[in-house]
Design a protein around this nucleic acid. Structure first.
Ligand SMILES: [Zn+2]
Ligand SMILES: [Zn+2]
Ligand SMILES: [Zn+2]
Ligand SMILES: [Zn+2]
Lengths: 159, 159
DNA sequence: TGTGCATTGATATGTTATAACAAGGATGCT
DNA sequence: AGCATCCTTGTTATAACATATCAATGCACA
């Protein structure tokens, strides 16, 4: 059941169902998935990889959807706030969420070989860091959990 | 015993002992803690706060230790690789390590009010993310664990 | 139909980080 | 001491990531 991102799968179906879930989310919450935003999400989802804002912008501008940085950043802002995409802090890059809507505290496995990203779950309060926070009287609002390394495919090729 | 960074403490002594440990580390491992690097570490340690590379550069250049970005980035590179400082990915900023030498996988509590940072321990392999990695055949090389929120002091003032 | 608000277009700028190459200085060997 | 080597620093330039600002457009709802 885990880390579909690193496994062979019917990605066309994967994308279709994710986009459907995203649209459902937006409809349910009164958010407007405009053409630029929709296309940005599709681009982010087209591979399970992290994409820089300017990479996204290049795709968008090639399709006539805007050529200036704010176009990309605004779309990314919307998607991240809506929970349809995530920012990978360790890469300053962005990835489409594979299960939008489900309210989740994501954790990521990031391959340094191919930049593929798999999304897992984390539970900030139950972790060791959560214990430290409680002991220190620190109130956690957001957590970043990212692991860099090599995915199965890149372990074989790169060793 | 935990999160000295958020508590009142004799910080002068705190710094002295940390710098001593850092020097011992460098001596033991044949690393050269040159004047720029030493001063950079002192600056990072002077408060338990994350400092941007350009903030550090401003301090250094005010003291005549170099005025161009590479000066700061090279010092930071050295300190991070030597385990004497850590990068806070969520802030693109850097913080001095409070227990240099001890080989550790750090996790951070980051106050969004005052940018204070407390260092805790994490155990990548034993976490839920570690389970996900094993299940996916992913080999973790480095982990980023950061929690943003409010420290005790900022909870009182800011609410 | 008009008012307000979210979205987009466009220009400019701010912030973070690295490439590339020349010069200086420590270390170790003969 | 002379020399080679390697690490470190100086300097210029540029790349990569991100936001401020203001004008224009379009949709939503009274
Ligand atoms: Zn897929
Ligand atoms: Zn997600
Ligand atoms: Zn201290
Ligand atoms: Zn604080």
């Amino acid at each position: 059941m885990s880390a579909i991102e690193f496994r062979d799968h019917d990605h066309a179906a994967c994308m279709r169902s994710t986009m459907q879930a995203a649209e459902a989310q937006c409809a349910a919450r009164g958010l407007r998935l405009t053409p630029v935003r929709r296309r940005a999400l599709e681009i982010l989802l087209s591979e399970h990889r992290a994409l820089g804002a300017y990479d996204l912008l290049a795709h968008l501008s090639a399709e006539g959807l805007g050529a200036q940085p704010p176009v990309a950043y605004r779309a990314l802002d919307f998607l991240v706030k809506a929970g349809l995409a995530h920012k990978i802090e360790a890469l300053n890059a962005y990835v489409g969420c594979v299960h939008p809507g489900e309210d989740h505290a994501p954790a990521f496995l990031i391959c340094r070989g191919c930049r593929s990203v798999a999304e897992a779950e984390t539970s900030p309060t139950k972790s060791r860091l959560g214990d430290a926070a409680r002991a220190a009287g620190f109130r956690i609002e957001r957590s970043v959990v990212e692991a860099e390394g090599l995915c199965p495919a890149c372990q074989e090729t790169g060793a």
